[in-house]
Design a protein around this nucleic acid. Structure first.
Length: 904
RNA sequence: CCUGAUGUGGCGCAACUGGUUAGCGCAUCCGUCUGAUACGCGGAAGGUUAGUGGUUCGAAUCCAUUCAUUAGGACCA
């Protein structure tokens, strides 16, 4: 914004105090002051200098009138306004002579002629009107301008404080509509800024400049780029303007408000302690008044005039009613309580003072933040009624709003509760960060980077959107909102959960399974894998409850994601698929259904605060068939809605950390074996003889033994063999345990690490056998134990080996004829299953199979024919020479055979 | 100018609160599987943890400082 700026010349009056500035009686001495708001110049009542700033008087020629003049400005700024000595080309004014410097303190009290006098009386500030003087204040700098501040106490806080402190009066020559008053000469009634966007608006600031130039009162006029404050909504320039206001003296309650704040649990902590806490410590009084039309009127009536002022503050309609009746009687009026208590009706009400004078309402409204802060009381119409309801809900357990509400809602809630009830208004608060665009920029309509919430909701749904916002990053961090993230969450989390549920529903329908809450198989009687997922589930519940109790929702959501994605879907269901579709209802099958049901139920419950719709849908589907029975028996699933159920509690007896650990081993060992298979290009359907595991401690072997079958079937090997180090074939790796050793060794840690790193296999074997080692570094002997080392199996020379941290596996890849035949059988099963699927057979259809009689398949059919038939629900499996029907399928080894399947 | 927050592969986030190969997901590339899958599995590539300096045996983590983004406030003669 470019504005007209003026350096005005204020003519110094010659008297005893100013005498030191005058070289001769005729000298015209002026003080220079810069302003970016020329419209405030007629309201000037003082000039402010810095007490310690050095000033100087310069003799020159007035640039617009060419008459001799002496001007005073800060010594540091002479170069800004005057040409350097000897610089003839400069357009700046020339220094003809310069005085000795003097301080601002010396100038204090100098009098000058009013710059633009229009005969207005000086208005008192704190009862004083001693205007047109030089005063001092510490805020004056020499960073720009002239080092002398034109001071108009009507416009700007600093000016007002300085004016008050020095007994300077004020001249408020602008009215509330932004126009000069009628008493400002040729500028009367003109807008000081272009508020109306008039076609022929003539900038009054320019006219002021012209007037000053003509009158030999301007030293410099130019357009200058600066930040003039503008209204955020209308983008029109703002004026600082003195208004009478009603304040709440919050500053008096500061200490108590800080104390109370310290009892509030802020999430994140730093907002409460830092941002909000620091702000409270620097608290200003609360200006309640707003000069507007819509809002809550101040309920204050006052007598007119300053004489024996009386005031009434009305607290209820009943009180107003009583006061109106009093006024009606005293003043002979016939008013009644307006139906609408807002403006303009309320303004018509006249009350009466104790001494019989009429009282009019203060026309201002109350700051709308007061409404927000009054919410806890207003929502119950307390204290007029509902005392019980109010007391049971105050203070609030929890609120949440954007972090930009620090001095909005958070503050007004806190201020009112502190002042009125000496209480906090909320015990826990989560201040959320801002939602930015995908690039981290603030969303704004003008930039066009706004995400339309309604489009997002209709495309992805409220649950996926909210899940993304809660799980992607902590809600108090600013969120780079990216629709791709919403989509990813929908696909990955909701998709997986949906499919897991569908899988359950598919087979539960086939088997007519219905949960019987009172007759489930006790967990301890269920298979290990069931106990495992249930243990995992309760571990999740435990973490979830801890995090949620702390209003830390993101880790809670992520725990659900991990459970659903990694454990439930990708491990439990995958490994248990057979149990659901194999055979008729058995105890094992029932256990599987019950386990999966419980996991889905609990998942739905935990996710329900963030994904209320999906969880409700899933809960409804899972429990509708048993609702009647549940209601009758008053069991936990009797509720129509998941949002009415009791949140599942942790059952520590069902958390088995050893079981979780060995399953973790199983997953990691399986993963290592699969990676070895991959490396050797051996497909999983090809059985292999054995996996070998180096055993470094006995508990590891016990643990693996517990999941041996699982690993074997998962990676399709026939056996697991344990290698103890007595066999001497394992090559080991040793590392110091930095955590235990670091503190003890300190400076010697580095040397020790080097020594240990150079251990031979024999050294390691010795250490393992004796369990101790005497370390000598820099002359010290330090006894170490096995605890101080981390020993891992690194390699088994001659075998195919892979490792993952402390885990190491070796794989035997010798394929015997029998294994090859079995592998082929599994390939055939796979191909036949594909044919079933592409032929659109029902999952339960039984089939006859014909297979082209080729050498590659003969051994498989001969040895594993029954297995194949069982797997694919085949009644018959025949080898047929030159089979030309069905479909040609590819088998390993680039063989092709014809297979034909028909429904029985 | 002051205060707070944030800064980690292309992107979004982790890292037991100072402990040694900085992980995960998405995206990319190669391969593979699938009668629950908007899937899954295996592999590859991708990092000076914003910069600089310091403390420490050891720093993404602690300190100082600079920069960037963002919020709030002060000031704007």
């Amino acid at each position: 914004m470019k504005d007209t700026t003026i350096v005005a010349m204020f003519k110094v009056e010659r008297n005893v105090e100013s005498d030191f500035l005058f070289d001769s009686a005729e000298e015209d001495v002026r003080i220079l002051a810069w302003t970016t708001t020329p419209w405030t110049l007629p309201s000037n009542t003082a000039l402010t200098v810095g007490p310690k700033v050095k000033y100087v008087k310069v003799q020159t020629t007035s640039p617009y009138t060419n008459v001799p003049v002496s001007v005073i400005l800060a010594e540091d700024l002479v170069g800004k306004w005057f040409a350097a000595e000897g610089d003839e080309k400069s357009k700046k004014a020339k220094v003809l002579a310069k005085s000795e410097t003097f301080t601002g303190k010396q100038m204090e009290g100098l009098r000058y002629e009013q710059l633009l006098g229009f005969g207005n009386d000086i208005e008192p500030l704190d009862g004083q009107t001693d205007a047109f003087r030089v005063i001092t204040a510490n805020f004056v700098t020499t960073s720009d301008g002239t080092g002398i501040v034109h001071t108009a106490p009507s416009f700007g806080a600093d000016d007002r404080f300085a004016g008050k402190a020095n007994g300077i009066g004020a001249l408020t020559l602008v009215d509330k509509s932004g126009k000069f008053k009628a008493t400002v000469g040729e500028f009367s009634n003109r807008y000081v800024k272009d508020y109306k966007e008039e076609e022929n608006y003539r900038d009054v600031n320019v006219d002021i400049a012209i007037r000053l130039k003509t009158d030999n009162k301007a030293f410099n006029v130019q357009k200058y780029e600066h930040n003039y404050p503008h209204c955020w909504r209308t983008d029109k320039p703002v004026l600082y303007y003195p208004l009478d206001s009603w304040f709440v003296r919050s500053s008096k309650m500061k200490a108590r408000m800080v104390e109370l704040n310290n009892t509030i649990n802020w999430q994140p902590k730093s907002t409460g302690e830092g941002r909000f806490g620091k702000w409270l410590e620097n608290l200003q009084d609360w200006n309640l008044s707003r000069s507007r039309y819509w809002g809550i009127p101040l309920p204050i009536w006052r007598t007119e005039g300053d004489e024996n002022l009386q005031e009434k503050c009305i607290g209820s309609v009943a009180e107003l009613q009583a006061e109106i009746e009093k006024a009606n009687t005293a003043l002979g009026l016939s008013q009644s309580v307006p139906e609408d208590l807002h403006r303009p009706y309320i303004d018509d009400i006249t009350l009466v003072s104790e001494d019989g004078r009429p009282m009019k309402r203060e026309t201002d409204l109350i700051d709308v933040w007061f409404d927000s802060g009054s919410m806890p009381y207003a929502q119950w119409h307390y204290p007029m009624e509902n005392e019980e309801k109010f007391k049971s809900s105050f203070p609030a357990d929890f609120i949440s709003e954007g972090v930009d509400q620090t001095r909005g809602w958070f503050y007004t809630l806190h201020a009112i509760a502190s002042m009125v009830y000496d209480s906090v208004a909320f015990k826990n608060v989560l201040s959320t960060g801002l939602v930015l665009d995908a690039k981290g920029k603030k969303m704004s309509k003008s930039k066009g980077n706004v995400v339309n919430p309604f489009d997002t909701l209709s495309t992805y749904g409220a649950d996926a959107t909210r899940w993304y916002m809660m799980s992607n990053s902590n809600p108090w961090d600013s969120l780079k909102f990216d629709l791709k993230g919403v989509e990813e969450g929908r696909n990955k989390f909701f998709g997986t959960l949906y499919n897991t549920y569908s899988f359950f529903a598919l087979y539960a329908n086939i088997d007519q399974f219905k949960i019987d809450e009172q007759n489930v198989i006790p967990v301890e009687e269920r298979p290990e894998i069931d106990r495992w997922i249930i243990s995992k589930m309760y571990s999740m519940v435990k973490l979830y409850r801890e995090r949620m109790s702390d209003y830390d929702v993101t880790p809670a959501c992520r725990a659900i994601e991990t459970f659903v994605g990694d454990h439930l879907s990708n491990w439990y269901v995958r490994l248990c698929r057979r149990r659901f579709w194999k055979g008729s209802m058995s105890k094992d099958k029932q256990a599987a259904y019950e386990t999966l049901f419980e996991c889905l139920m609990v998942t739905a419950q935990l996710m329900s605060p963030v994904a209320p719709f999906f969880s409700e849908w899933m809960y409804g589907n899972l429990t509708a068939p048993i609702r009647e029975a549940a209601v009758k028996n008053q069991t936990p699933l009797r509720h129509r809605s998941i949002h009415l159920t009791d949140l599942v509690k942790v059952d520590d007896s069902l958390i088995d950390t050893a079981l979780e650990e060995r399953m973790d081993y199983a997953q990691r060992i399986s993963s290592l074996v699969l990676s070895l298979r991959k490396k050797e290009n051996i497909r999983v359907r090809q059985p292999l003889p054995k996996v070998m595991l180096p055993i470094l401690d006995a508990s590891f072997q016990t643990q693996v033994e517990g999941v041996k079958d699982l690993i074997m079937s998962e990676v399709n090997v026939k056996d697991i063999e344990y290698l103890t180090d007595t066999s001497g074939v394992i090559k080991k790796k040793i590392k110091p345990n930095f955590k235990t050793l670091g503190r003890r060794l300190g400076k010697n840690m580095k040397a020790a690490a080097q020594t240990i790193g150079q251990f031979t296999q024999e050294d390691i074997a010795n250490l393992e056998r004796t369990g101790e080692y005497m370390l000598s570094v820099n002359g010290d002997n330090i006894p170490l134990t096995l605890e101080d080392f981390e020993i891992t199996a690194e390699d088994i020379p001659g075998l195919l080996v892979a490792n993952d941290g402390p885990l190491t596996v070796a794989l035997d890849i010798t394929i015997s004829d029998a294994l090859a035949a079995e592998g082929m059988a599994r390939e055939l099963v796979n191909r036949i299953q594909n044919l079933r699927k592409s032929s659109d057979f029902e999952v339960t259809d039984r089939i006859n199979i014909q297979l082209e009689d080729k050498e590659v398949v003969q051994a498989a059919v001969a040895q594993f024919g029954d297995y194949i038939k069982a797997e694919v629900l085949g009644d018959s499996l025949d080898l047929v020479a030159d089979l030309g029907s069905g479909e040609a399928v590819e088998l390993p080894g680039e063989e092709t055979v014809w297979i034909s399947v028909t429904k029985v």
